[in-house]
Amino acid sequence: MTEDNPQPVPPAGPDEEARKWALIAHLSGLVGFLIPFGSLIGPLLVWQLKKDADPFIDDQGKEALNFQITVAIAGLICVLLMVVLIGLLLIWVVIIGALVLMVIAAVKANEGQAYRYPFVWRVIK
């Protein structure tokens, strides 16, 4: 190998297709704003359909699904706490936090970096 003709460096990390599907897995949680339980169905469908295509999609699909399960549980707790009014404030914290974290995860996945959501109960391993 000379300086005039360097060897090409293989791309590091997942390919463009895997990054795209990982991004879709994270953002598919937004479907929950359109249909009931869509926030769970979206990541589940992406993960189930594409998990065998690439290990990165499998990993990020599970992470997105675990996050949406955690958000659904937190949302249910907020609804129960609406009896004492604190749930009304907390539900907005959960919604805004979930939106921000989904966007961060989607950007990281698009960059080819595996993202781990904070405070997530990882039900699916």
Rank of each mutant, 00 (worst) to 15 (best):
N66I: 03
H26Y: 04
G38E: 10
K51E: 08
P36E: 05
K62V: 01
P6Q: 08
V84T: 14
I77E: 06
G13F: 05
N110S: 14
L99Q: 02
V120A: 10
P36W: 01
L76S: 14
A64P: 15
G38R: 13
P14C: 07
W121S: 01
V123P: 12
I41N: 11
L76Q: 11
V46P: 01
A109H: 05
L49N: 03
K125I: 00
I73N: 04
E111F: 00
G61S: 14
W121P: 00
V46N: 01
V103A: 04
V94C: 04
I24F: 08
D52V: 02
G75R: 12
P43E: 13
K62N: 08
L101I: 00
V120K: 11
T2I: 00
A18V: 07
D4N: 09
D4Q: 15
G75E: 13
E3N: 13
L99P: 02
A72K: 04
A106I: 02
P14W: 03
F119C: 11
L34H: 03
A12Y: 05
L45A: 13
S28H: 10
M82E: 07
I96L: 13
P8Y: 02
L85R: 06
V100R: 04
A105N: 05
V107W: 00
V84K: 03
A64C: 13
P8N: 08
K50N: 03
K62R: 15
K20R: 14
M1A: 13
I104M: 13
G75I: 06
V100D: 01
L45N: 02
Q68C: 08
G32W: 01
G29Y: 05
W92M: 04
L80S: 00
L23N: 09
A105G: 06
V84N: 11
Q60P: 13
D15C: 09
M1V: 08
A22D: 11
G13L: 09
R122T: 00
L30H: 08
G97V: 04
Y117K: 07
I57S: 05
F67P: 14
Q48C: 01
L89M: 12
I41A: 07
A18T: 06
A53M: 03
K62L: 09
V46C: 02
G32N: 09
I95K: 06
L85C: 07
V100E: 03
M1R: 14
R122Q: 11
I77V: 15
L44W: 15
H26M: 08
K51Y: 01
V123W: 10
G38P: 14
W47S: 12
V94M: 03
P14K: 09
G61P: 03
L44Q: 10
D15A: 11
P14N: 02
G29I: 06
I35E: 05
C78Q: 13
I24M: 07
K20T: 06
D58N: 15
L30Y: 14
F37H: 14
V123K: 12
K51T: 06
L40C: 12
L80V: 12
A109S: 15
P6G: 03
Q113R: 12
K20A: 04
I104S: 07
A109N: 06
S28N: 14
A25D: 04
V100Y: 02
E16Q: 14
I57F: 03
I35N: 02
V31E: 01
A72P: 06
Q68R: 10
V79C: 11
M1L: 05
V71Y: 07
